[in-house]
Design a protein around this nucleic acid. Structure first.
Lengths: 192, 192
DNA sequence: TACTAAACGGAGACAGTCCCCGCTTATTTC
DNA sequence: GAAATAAGCGGGGACTGTCTCCGTTTAGTA
């Protein structure tokens, strides 16, 4: 394997600054924050930005990997603390909250679970899918989640729930409700 | 009431052409089709386009009202043909299909059911919400839909289902499945 | 200190939005 | 039919954003 020579000091510095500024900008203006503006705020030319991050996706991804990987870790914590079904439910809740509250993460998570997206191979995607798989399989073993459903489908449906909650425009106030509608179904409960 | 003087013949002509071209363009390039390009293809200046349709939303709406109102009519047809629960299910399916297949309609339907959107007062929004209300209330009376859910929530959830199906990227192949997951819930069926 | 490859940065080509305002024309009036 | 007029046209241009190219600068090395 070719030895990867370490980044030059100035390059590393710029890279870090760009990431920091980008995270702020995406949080503030959403996924369409101006890239030239991010470069400017980071005190570099736009050429530098595009060299480090060839696409908006790449920058978005880099800016939020940590947060996404934290969701992966969180999945395992929840798996230890709660019974599988509840762990899955709570994890999906936290995923949805992140999706809505951190502007810019929606696009990223979306393309991570999108069939045919190049992003499907990225660290974010891998980490999300891994976490989902562990929780889903556990819940299925436990018998609280139907067998005929794939981990990635659960992620896609969660994304759908985020979309629905977003339309209700309450800073995520409706996530719990819509998630439980999805879990319980739209039919009247047998208890009702 | 002030008498509304009819549009001048040339104005009406341009208006019609713009609508026709816009519907094509949105279908082809999605909701972000270039407006100047639409003007050009319709053989008018961009000023003319912006005079008739001050915002992209306005154009989108005008281009698709008919189709949306057809969905309203369709709701009533289905209500006659099928028992309420099934009518609602089938109608939601058709709504989702439209949302996905006709590029550009997603944004429109989305803002129609979005809380706090100006579009919430438009013809599209009214017609969709009316149709949803009729079907939802019938299904609730019949007892096949839980009582604690609002018509607009059903529309939002359907929009979520469209989003999820879109991520699965099969030209709507997954709509039926995701819609029934929503209807039945994610728990194992009592039959299984 | 001198060399070199890596990295920088910003000008500029391009695409999109949207407004402004001088010009054109459909309609009305006589 | 000609003149008057207001409704409507249209494209130039200011602005914002993307992304590339290439001459210049600089970190790392010997």
């Amino acid at each position: 394997m070719a030895q990867v020579r370490p980044m030059r000091a100035d390059a590393r510095r710029n890279y870090e600054r760009l990431l920091k500024v980008a995270a702020e900008a995406f949080a503030e203006h959403g996924e369409n924050a101006s890239l030239d503006d991010i470069a400017k705020r980071a005190g570099v030319g736009s050429g530098t930005l595009y060299r480090h991050f060839p696409t908006r996706q790449a920058l978005l991804e880099a800016a939020y990997v940590e947060r996404i990987e934290a969701l992966g870790t969180r999945a395992d914590e929840l798996a230890k603390e709660l019974p599988p079904g509840e762990a899955l439910a709570e994890w999906l809740y936290e995923v949805c909250v992140g999706t809505i509250q951190v502007r810019g993460m929606k696009a990223l998570l979306g393309s991570a679970v999108m069939d045919g997206s190049q992003a499907a191979l990225t660290a974010c995607a891998t980490s999300m899918k891994g976490a989902a798989q562990r929780l889903v399989e556990a819940a299925q073993r436990e018998g609280t989640l139907r067998q005929d459903i794939e981990p990635i489908e659960v992620l896609r449906l969660a994304h759908g729930v985020s979309t629905a909650s977003e339309l209700a425009n309450g800073q995520g106030k409706h996530i719990r409700r819509y998630l439980s509608l999805l879990t319980d179904g739209l039919r009247p409960s047998s208890a009702g």
